[in-house]
């Protein structure tokens, strides 16, 4: 997993509430046994018509959103199933940051594990970003190190993210390796917990 400190990129607006992981990656694409190659199926049922052609009405198919690396979404993004295929698909498609007023818990956690930064901002701030991104090609700069997000129109907002996850994202560390360094704590916990009573 590669980390990042700052990101400048195009932002696409998806002004829908409660976007669930069944929409992000429909179930017919969950049968693969790899982590890669899911981007082509991202938002499949919305992105493509019944005939398999790109749906011109769908947000991500609009010309101004091509090449977007930041997704601006609405409340409760990523609700439903725990499928990690959702962040795999978003990442594989090219997204690195998702901004929303709120996220579902498991999805939020899954993003952090895959180098995808979920940024929670107040609803009115997200509304500003959505309106900007809906009108024209819109770039945002995300500074993960300092927790700042800016545009070229003098907009600036701060965001917070747990220091632990920030470090993991910036450094792209292997979390299991970190935990295995605590092997003796795990072993002594097990000895106490499973001691014959």
């Amino acid at each position: 997993m590669s980390g990042f400190k700052t990101l400048q990129g195009k932002a696409a607006a998806m002004d829908r509430a409660n976007v669930d992981t069944d929409q992000i990656i429909p179930k017919q694409f969950l049968k693969r046994i790899e982590k890669t190659g899911f981007g082509q199926y991202l938002f499949y049922d919305w992105r493509f018509t019944k005939e398999g052609l790109p749906n011109p009405e769908f947000e991500l198919n609009k010309a101004e959103n091509q090449g977007a690396s930041i997704l601006i979404a609405n409340e409760n993004f990523g609700c439903g199933s725990s499928r990690e295929h959702a962040p795999w698909a978003l990442g594989d498609y090219g997204f690195k940051v998702i901004i929303a007023p709120s996220f579902a818990d498991i999805f939020h956690q899954n993003c952090l594990k895959n180098g995808l930064l979920p940024i929670t901002l107040p609803a009115e701030t997200v509304e500003y970003l959505l309106q900007r991104a809906k009108k024209q090609p819109y770039d945002l700069k995300v500074d993960l190190q300092n927790g700042i997000i800016e545009d070229e129109y003098n907009f600036s907002a701060t965001f917070t993210i747990n220091e632990y996850w920030k470090k993991m994202l910036i450094n792209g560390w292997d979390e299991i390796e970190i935990t295995l360094q605590l092997e003796s704590s795990i072993s002594s916990f097990e000895e106490k917990r499973f001691a014959v009573q």
Binding site: K35, S82, R83, E84, P87, I106, Q109, N110, K113, N114, N162, Y164, E175, I176, T179, L180, I186, E190
Partner: peptide
């Protein structure tokens, strides 16, 4: 009891633990 993603499945398999707030 709670649902987890595949990275966490791997973490539990390897360590029998999870980092949780």
């Amino acid at each position: 009891a709670f649902g987890i993603g595949t990275s966490e499945v791997e973490h539990v398999l390897a360590t029998q633990t999870l980092w949780q707030s």
